[in-house]
Design a protein around this nucleic acid. Sequence first.
DNA 1: GACATATCGTTGCACACGCAAATAGTCCGC
DNA 2: GCGGACTATTTGCGTGTGCAACGATATGTC
Lengths: 153, 153
Amino acid sequence: MGIADDAVEVRARGWRTLAALHGLIESTLERRLGEAVGLSVVEYTVLDALDRQDGWHMRMQQLAGATALSASATTRLVTRLEDRGLLTRVLCADDRRGIYTELTPAGRELYERARPIHDETLERVLGEAAARPELAPLVDALHVVAPSEAALA
Amino acid sequence: MGIADDAVEVRARGWRTLAALHGLIESTLERRLGEAVGLSVVEYTVLDALDRQDGWHMRMQQLAGATALSASATTRLVTRLEDRGLLTRVLCADDRRGIYTELTPAGRELYERARPIHDETLERVLGEAAARPELAPLVDALHVVAPSEAALA
DNA sequence: GACATATCGTTGCACACGCAAATAGTCCGC
DNA sequence: GCGGACTATTTGCGTGTGCAACGATATGTC
């Protein structure tokens, strides 16, 4: 077994670890957000993405990108949230194929309520993951993805 | 905004990055494995986990853990693969509630055919991800999860 | 030995997803 | 300004998923 074979195995192991950590975080968030505010993880992701645009619109396709969802799933997801009064569809004038979505006051209010729960849960589950030897290295590595703002503090 | 607030934001950003990378890898593997050998990612994961046990059994629950799937989804997943003749259910004598699964020769053969495709695709998609600035740091960090064998080479 | 309790796997059900086809709008060459 | 290629979003359809309820076995208590 040479160096190339080892590289293959390292990648495979890294991917399994990534998938395991992702599954753990997502299922925990799913449970917690569901029971606390009646939101799924993707639904929270949409609200979070829209809020981070701060009053700005977002196209369906951007939303699909942010959620890693197909176009059709995004359509239905937005429809669900619209039916609950959390966001609205806005036709945009310059490109009339495109549809913008923005948060309603109710949507913003629910997001403000959901965010602390999301953040606490994320902190807790990352702590649990750090206690598992096979996940710990990857948990530690998550810090490196956002060096900029932390360095400015 | 203090240090604690930054920690929250760093975790949230890390989680978004993790989810984005996971989504990219999974959807790419899904497409490629589907068209090449007719396997989904979870199905490949089952074959891979069973093969890595090398002739050994695996309980349903271990399989559920390895795939990050619910018990019911695991039941149906195993049923699908059993119907295709890729694995068999084996009742175990010592605990008659438990059910072991093991690969059939056909299952092992298909796995051998799928593995190089899986490995190539993983290499390619990790390369693509490394080219995206927001994903690159996490891709680099994946190496750290498997220090042992690489160091022994 | 019998009952309560817990664990393992399976099934009914509702629902979210991806793919492919359909619809509506834009852009470009001419 | 007209036809064709392209893009953005939506709908039909089949399928995989989680949750809750169930049957079967194991374990502990009296």
